[in-house]
Design a binder for these strands. Structure first.
Length: 836
RNA sequence: GCGGCGGUGGCGGAACUGGUAUACGCGAUGGAUUCAAAAUCCAUUGCCCGCAAGGGCAUGUGGGUUCGAUUCCCACCCGCCGCACCA
């Protein structure tokens, strides 16, 4: 008996797959393309190559590979590519610290990732490999940027933006979490800078609507995106300050409460603030207040429990519905980046306005009657009231229900030219420029004559120049590459300067899944025919941490590319699966805590198959789980058991090309084992199709292998027994193949011969799923009192008779009369009795 | 505060449409094998009472529907995740 040596087996099959290009597939226009085969695109999120792959990668690619294998064996032509999200800050920060160029560290990391993905035996079509930092790739990132630029979807603008002082760059809204930089956790500052944006807001509505086009996304991810886009319906209403002659539009979701507006508030960043108070008594206090707010952190300001603060401006605006003059304030509870940065305050019907009115002793005018049954913290009048009811103190709308008044007031304002219905989004345009080195240069030249000039297509890529000092200085390190910066304008030939900001690395990863489909194309980013053949991605797999960032950006990109005629589908990912995080001792793994798990160690000790199958066996993959060394060993033990059963059989009986089929004439133990194998096929197929319940698929194969051990001593003696054993072992190998592809290949070769990955996914024989006898549970008054074995398909009356005779049941029936008999065929009998 | 997900043995988890709760794995205990150990194989393993047969209690808590509830309904407690002064 030989020992299970995973490293040998795994090396053997990895060589076979590499030499034969087993996982390579052809698309339209490629040699060998077969249009009749159904296509499936299985994709895991692009890894950022830094150091070594961690367990999160192991889980993601193990899950994805299992799906890829399962689809292949169900007849699909599966494209399953791999690449690297290889631009980004870690490599650059390392360069600042050590002086090693980002390219060197990145190349090293990529080699390590590639090597380990191979050692894991992930079924990747390596001919499609990409890395976003290569000029061959970012040439097309730049091309897409210019496509967006020409379509008016990329623009440059001065705006208040979020600046991370530690990373010395601006950030997109999505990259600021609770006022802190998503990457490094430093508190961000607001700066007024000229930056590049993608017009994501132009797609706000479609980003919402097209959730309907998705086949299966986790509901919580859709909810998160919905919240992020933050659509709200209402009206834009104009308030005029007659004293200085400025109109202030406000967005409100409650135009029905307009008559209750008793004051008016501007955000501290409001651009007209200066003009309103210049030269007045309020100027000093307002300036002090604005400065004080500017110093406060985003986190402090966001605290809604904090008492309301603000300063009167000494000005007033006219309420357009009743002509009343209402006083103006500046207060930090009004945010500049939502709506218009100004609000009409209706203290009677809005909690925040109410709190402010209380603090500043301002009038509170109720305009909707009603009682809020559920609300707490109301004053004696039941205010603030946010429910519905009849209008009061609202002129000709008095007595009307507020919902109706809502529509009529908007209509009236529209007719008067003082307002209109409006939809507002929380979503901002995507800020894509970064003042950092290790990213794709923005392909624009600034010409004193022509302005912003796109670099012509035939001059792409704009290659990232080599520099010596990567340290950020508040502007892009590329500024220092004078030879590179100074160019002739592509339009007029005048001396001009290149744009020195680089692109957010999320731009790189917003379209990589398209480049995989045509990776070597030197004349276009991807051929539409190829993209349309494979897209959208049938199954996307990755962590929830990208629920908003990457997934929203990629959706935006595909919509834009679709509108520009480059691709058919408007959605990149038809089905999304988000895997849960693996922890260690209940805590998130991190280098600083020293609780990281290195997949390479486990692959070394137990083999890739054990490590892969273990992460799939830990629990439902969408949930997280705690890493356990004993757990890996357990899975390894199971694989070794299968291996030993197979070697024992192969040594004694050789291979049999028909071994994978199940003869129908088994009897006794042979029949029991064959039935178990068919049960496992049925269970595994069902669990695979229902979702991604890989843990129970693996458990079913474990049960099958346990059954092999229970019966094999008795079966090894005769031909039928050997056939049953062979069938069971072959079935186990076949079912475990998506999780342990090397072992499965080896076992299959030993007992059947040939290649398991080329064998169609097995189908259970329905006749073998029916057992000859059934165990029936007998309950008396809902409590289990006995179990009986009966022939399958027994009649109801016979069953009831047998049930009443079951030894332990008899005692409970003595001296009772039966009220009711419940029979569930093949499962259970419940006798409901009461004392006679 | 709002929204989502979850709470089952010593631990990770299973139970597809309301029908044997605790599959499978880990751990533990005992046995076989061995000079010995590792490895392996076999058996036992929810808790309590009982020599046993058997009984009682158990799926966060309390109620409800039902012949029967981990599963459905109501209320509550706890944990995790997301959002949160969005006008």
């Amino acid at each position: 008996m030989s020992r299970y040596l995973p490293r040998e087996i795994e090396g053997k099959w990895q060589s076979v797959w590499a030499e034969e290009g087993t996982w390579e597939v052809a698309g339209p226009g490629d040699p060998g393309f077969d249009p009749s085969r159904p296509a499936a695109y299985v994709l895991e999120m692009l890894p950022y190559p830094s150091g070594e792959p961690h367990v999160g990668h192991l889980k993601c690619y193990s899950v994805g590979d299992a799906i890829a294998h399962f689809r292949r064996r169900n007849g699909f032509e599966v494209i399953h590519p791999m690449g690297y999200d290889s631009f980004g800050l870690p490599a650059e920060n390392n360069a600042i610290k050590t002086g090693e160029p980002p390219l060197t560290a990145t190349t090293r990391s990529i080699e390590s990732f590639r090597r380990q993905f191979n050692e894991w035996g992930i079924s990747i079509d390596w001919t499609r490999e990409i890395a976003t930092h290569t000029p061959e790739y970012y040439r097309w990132t730049q091309w897409i940027f210019l496509q967006l630029f020409e379509a008016g979807l990329a623009y440059r603008d001065r705006a208040p933006v979020q600046w991370c002082p530690n990373d010395a760059t601006v950030l997109a809204n999505e990259q600021v979490i609770d006022g802190r930089c998503e990457r490094c956790g430093t508190e961000v500052e607001t700066r007024n800078l000229e930056q590049w944006f993608f017009r994501t807001t132009a797609y706000a509505e479609r980003l919402l609507e097209d959730f309907d086009l998705l086949e299966s996304w986790p509901e919580h991810v859709i909810t998160m995106q919905r919240n992020w886009i933050g659509r709200s319906e209402g009206a834009e209403v104009m308030f005029r300050c007659e004293e200085v002659g400025i109109d202030f539009p406000v967005f409100t979701t409650r135009p029905d409460t307009l008559f209750g507006a008793t004051f008016f508030v501007l955000a501290p960043e409001h651009p007209e603030l200066e003009a309103l108070v210049a030269g007045t008594e309020a100027e000093g206090p307002v300036r002090d207040y604005v400065n004080q707010v500017a110093r406060a952190s985003v986190e402090e300001r966001g605290d809604e429990a904090r008492p309301k603060t603000g300063v009167p401006l000494g000005r007033s605006v006219t309420n357009p519905v009743n002509g009343e003059q209402i006083p103006m304030f500046v207060a930090d509870y009004v945010l500049m980046d939502y709506g218009t940065g100004a609000v009409m305050a209706v203290p009677a019907h809005d909690e925040r306005d109410y709190a402010f009115a209380r603090a500043f002793d301002l009038p509170i005018e109720r305009v909707i009657e009603g009682v809020d049954e559920e609300a707490e913290d109301l004053d004696a009048d039941g205010l603030p009231y946010s429910g519905d009811g009849p209008m009061v103190r609202s002129g000709r709308f008095d007595g009307m229900n507020n919902r109706k008044a809502y529509d009529e007031i908007v209509e009236w304002l529209s007719a008067e030219g003082r307002g209109e219905s409006a939809v507002n989004y929380r979503l901002r345009d995507w800020l894509v420029s970064r003042q950092r080195y290790w990213g794709a240069p923005i392909p624009i030249v600034h010409c004193p004559e022509c302005g912003m000039v796109p670099v012509p297509d035939d001059q792409l890529p704009v290659e990232l120049p080599e520099i010596s000092d990567y340290a950020p200085k508040g502007k892009s390190p590329l500024e220092a590459a004078t030879d590179w910066v100074e160019v002739d304008c592509p339009g007029c030939g005048a001396a001009a300067r290149r744009e020195t900001d680089t692109m957010d690395t999320f731009v790189d990863s917003s379209w990589y899944f398209l480049r995989y489909l045509d990776p070597a194309n030197g004349t276009t980013a991807f051929e539409r025919e190829k993209a349309d053949h494979w897209m959208p991605v049938d199954q996307y797999i990755g962590g929830v941490e990208h629920a908003i960032l990457h997934l929203l950006y990629a959706r935006f990109f595909v919509k834009a590319l679709s509108d520009l005629g480059h691709i058919e589908t408007p959605e990149p990912f038809a089905n999304l699966f988000t895997q849960g995080m693996i922890t260690r001792d209940g805590a998130k793994m991190s280098k600083s805590k020293g609780n990281t798990v290195s997949p390479a160690d486990y692959v070394e000790r137990f083999g890739a198959d054990s490590a892969r199958a273990y992460v799939c066996f830990m629990g439902p993959p969408e949930r997280g789980g705690d890493w356990s060394d004993e757990g890996v060993e357990g899975v390894h033990r199971f694989l070794a058991r299968l291996w030993r059963a197979a070697t024992d059989l192969a040594e004694a009986e050789g291979q049999d090309p028909d071994g994978a089929s199940c003869p129908a004439d088994f009897e006794g133990d042979a029949r029991v084992l064959a039935a178990k194998a068919n049960w496992a096929i049925d269970k595994a197929t069902g669990d695979f199709s229902r979702g991604f319940q890989f843990n129970t698929v693996i458990a079913a194969v474990m049960e099958l292998v346990n059954e092999v051990y229970r019966t094999r001593d008795d079966l090894a003696g005769d031909a039928a027994g050997v056939a049953a054993l062979r069938f069971a072992i072959a079935t186990a190998a076949s079912l475990i193949q998506p999780f342990a592809p090397h072992l499965a290949a080896e076992v299959w070769e030993m007992v059947v011969g040939g290649r398991v990955w080329e064998v169609p996914w097995p189908e259970a024989d329905p006749a073998m799923l029916i057992s000859e006898t059934a165990t029936i549970v007998i309950q008396v008054n809902g409590k289990v009192r006995d179990r009986i074995e009966v022939p399958d398909g027994i009649g109801e009356s016979e069953l009831l008779l047998a049930a009443r005779e079951a030894p332990n049941v008899v005692r409970y029936l003595e001296g009772t009369e039966t009220v009711k008999e419940v029979v569930v065929p093949g499962k259970l009998v419940n006798l409901v009795v009461k004392p006679a």
